[in-house]
Amino acid sequence: MSKEKFINLVSTAVPLPVENIDTDQIIPARFLKATTREGFGDNLFRDWRFDNDGQPVKDFVLNGSRYSGKILVAGKNFGCGSSREHAAWALYDFGFRVVISSFFADIFKNNALNNGLLPVVVSDVYLKGLFETVKANPSAAITVDLENQTVSSGAQVAKFEINKYKKTCMINGYDDIDYLLSLNKEVREFDLTHAGS
């Protein structure tokens, strides 16, 4: 299944300067009961967005009109916790295409990349600057250029790392499974001959 191609993006951003945002916050477990990939956006950050009575929490960033956009800027160690891919689906379904942070948890990073959501790692200093920029000017445009691996807002430019293979996949909308399926014959042989179980 090929996915949407990602080349570059210019958008405003939503700041969420909290560290260690775990996948239980991104999408609480009780909303993992669907058997399809769609519709998780409604429950993104559910318990931060809504109070016990289901009313929107007024000062939560996703509820006000001040911030919007396809880029989420979040504190360090974003996506720690469970392996639930639903976290990436929820962010994507809500409309995010990029998450910028100074550190991502491993499994989340993989899941995001497998679903067309680009995790962009920047330095702590750049991240701090970005929070300040967005807070001062919510309509500031941020450019994420995957081809050149840069993120920029005004004069602040940062290079980011991305694995070459994953970059090719994102740009072309490829899926890992296509590559693995092409190895089918080799794997069959391996399955029969490899020692130890």
């Binding site: 392996s83 639930r84 891919e85 491993d106 499994i107 993989n110 899941n111 499974i177 693995l180």
Partner: peptide
């Protein structure tokens, strides 16, 4: 190690997973 659902699909379909050595 734990994996996401796209990877569950890869393993079901190919018995392999694409991974960088940590």
């Amino acid at each position: 190690f734990g994996i996401g659902t796209s990877e569950v699909e890869q393993v079901l379909g190919t018995q392999c997973i694409l991974q960088y050595k940590p």
